[in-house]
């Protein structure tokens, strides 16, 4: 694709289908990027990630959700009934849900802490699933729960580096959901994930004069120009909606 007026060479995009987010990242996430979707509880990480997959499936892409913390059945019961959702996406295999504990079990990874060899086994297993299903969009919810089993920064680094490289080589755009506490001053629990990921979408709660607003900010996205401003979001049946955060009355630090 030719350079545009900014001199940026445009990479192929994975259009999220979330209009405002696509606008923020200049047309979509660069295809093959591994993006950390990070934030504290109740900020909309899972909902945003799910919508990313549903839009992909509607466009004919093969999409995979790997749930680590709760069963897929429970997840499906709690998901917002999108106006644009179609059950046939699941029936036709365009949208597939897998439970990570089942993968652990099939790989014989029953222990609470994995060694380096087991990290490789896990990455290879995810890679094989992505190849077999011809997955072009992947969500792992949450990567933090996987990292709890890796424990050391060295193993976490190895896991995310290898996983990112494998997925990128297959043209798979991935969202890795990361959980942090509200008071956290970094974008990931172990501090390693944020440095390795190609992008960081930070979702938070902003308290302003007693009101609690859900916010979204693209902190980093390799391969594209993007806004770094903070947006306010709403989780609706029409999907995630975003508007710019008004700054006129913001308190310091808001």
């Amino acid at each position: 694709m030719p350079d545009d007026i900014t001199g940026e060479r445009k990479r192929d995009r994975c259009v999220t289908g979330i209009d405002a987010l696509d606008s923020i990242v200049d047309g979509g996430i660069p295809r093959g990027n591994t993006v950390l979707v990070t934030g504290s509880v109740g900020t909309g990480k899972t909902t945003l990630s799910m919508e990313f997959l549903v839009h992909g499936a509607l466009e004919g892409e093969n999409c995979l959700f790997i749930s680590v913390t709760e069963s897929c059945e429970k997840l499906m019961n709690n998901i917002i009934p999108y106006d644009f959702f179609d059950e046939k996406l699941i029936r036709e295999g365009k949208l597939v849900f897998l439970d990570m504990p089942v993968i652990y079990s099939q790989l014989g990874l029953e222990q609470l802490e994995f060694d380096m060899e087991e990290v490789d086994v896990l990455v290879d297993a995810i890679s094989d699933i992505v190849t077999e299903l011809q997955t072009s969009r992947l969500v792992i919810d949450s990567i933090t729960s996987v990292c709890y089993r890796l424990r050391t920064q060295e193993k976490i680094r190895e896991f995310i580096l290898r996983l990112g490289a494998v997925l990128s080589s297959k043209g798979c755009t991935s969202l890795l959901v990361s959980e942090i506490s509200p008071a956290e001053e970094r974008y990931s629990l172990f501090g390693v994930e944020e440095a390795i990921a190609d992008g960081i979408i930070f979702m938070g709660n902003l308290e302003r004069r007693g009101d609690l607003l859900r916010t979204l900010q693209v902190v980093k996205m390799r391969g594209t120009m993007h806004s770094r401003a903070k947006y306010v979001l709403d989780l609706t049946h029409c999907g995630v909606l975003l508007v710019p955060l008004l700054k006129g009355g913001s308190v310091a630090g808001g």
Partner: peptide, 20 residues
């Protein structure tokens, strides 16, 4: 909308109704 101070949420609800 919870409060008239949540102006962003007013914009979001308008956007939602426009889409609906």
């Amino acid at each position: 909308v919870e409060s008239p101070t949540m102006l962003e949420n007013v914009m979001l609800k308008v956007e939602y109704l426009i889409r609906k």
